[in-house]
């Protein structure tokens, strides 16, 4: 495989803070609490970049999986919410491999009332490898919303994932995409895990047993928004 560093190219928007945050993430893989904090910090940093591209006063729908809601997505929301209306769409996907790729059907979902009126979608994902989950969740929303732009936000993407996601959609939708990420990795194991990526399977790293759809995990973000 070579050294992990040899398989990573940093994006132009990745300053020293972002690079340090990614390194901290990889160093935190044995401590879920530290890993969570690091992921949240990365979310703040990514959110600050997106913040510069979305007009003040806009209504933004932050889209995330249940595992990313309380950390990466929470960090992004923190950076965006001071001058905008922020709504949330959270999906419990069941992501698994097929012989011809993978799918991630939605099992449960949380759609904050009023989500249809969002001007911008900010789709947050801890790692984008096959783009299957991101594709699924955009599809689950695209016909109920009329976004001016769709930001796809991730700490790390696998090489080619951006083009692969664009190629899936009709041009009218793909042309709305704007990708914000700190690094592109070009190595992936046979099981589809990006290396160095985010250090492994995000569920276990965050201290979750498995995919939230399989455990009934409810993010605090959703509990808060439901006033539960």
């Amino acid at each position: 495989m070579g050294t992990p560093e040899a398989h990573r190219r940093f994006a132009s928007c990745a300053d020293e803070g972002a690079k340090n945050a990614l390194n901290t993430l990889l160093e935190s893989t044995r401590e879920p609490s530290a890993y969570r904090a690091s992921m949240t910090d990365i979310g703040r940093q990514l959110g600050r970049i997106v913040d510069g591209s979305i007009p003040i006063g806009s209504k933004c729908l932050v889209v995330a999986t249940a595992e990313d809601a309380d950390y990466l997505a929470a960090g992004v929301i923190e950076s965006l919410r001071s001058s905008r209306d922020i709504l949330a769409a959270i999906f419990w996907n069941n992501h698994y491999p097929l012989n011809n790729g993978s799918i991630a059907p939605v099992v449960h979902r949380y759609l904050q009332p009023g989500y249809q009126d969002a001007d911008y979608l900010v789709v947050v994902k801890s790692i984008i490898s096959s783009s299957c989950v991101v594709r699924t969740n955009i599809l689950a929303l695209i016909e109920q919303t009329s976004p001016k732009r769709i930001f796809v936000v991730s700490p790390v993407m696998y090489i080619g994932a951006e083009n692969a996601l664009r190629d899936e959609f009709p041009p009218a939708i793909a042309d709305l995409f704007e990708f914000v990420y700190f690094a592109v990795d070009d190595y992936r194991t046979k099981t589809g895990e990006v290396r160095p990526g985010i250090g492994g399977q995000v569920y276990q790293l965050l201290g979750l047993e498995d995919q939230p759809a399989r455990t009934g995990f409810m993010p605090q973000l959703v509990k808060t928004l439901m006033a539960l």
Partner: peptide
């Protein structure tokens, strides 16, 4: 009529057809 579900079904059928 959820298009994400439709695409997943199409993908599943494509997979078994390939096999």
């Amino acid at each position: 009529d959820d298009v994400s579900t439709a695409n997943a079904v199409f993908t599943l059928l494509l997979g078994v057809w390939h096999s």
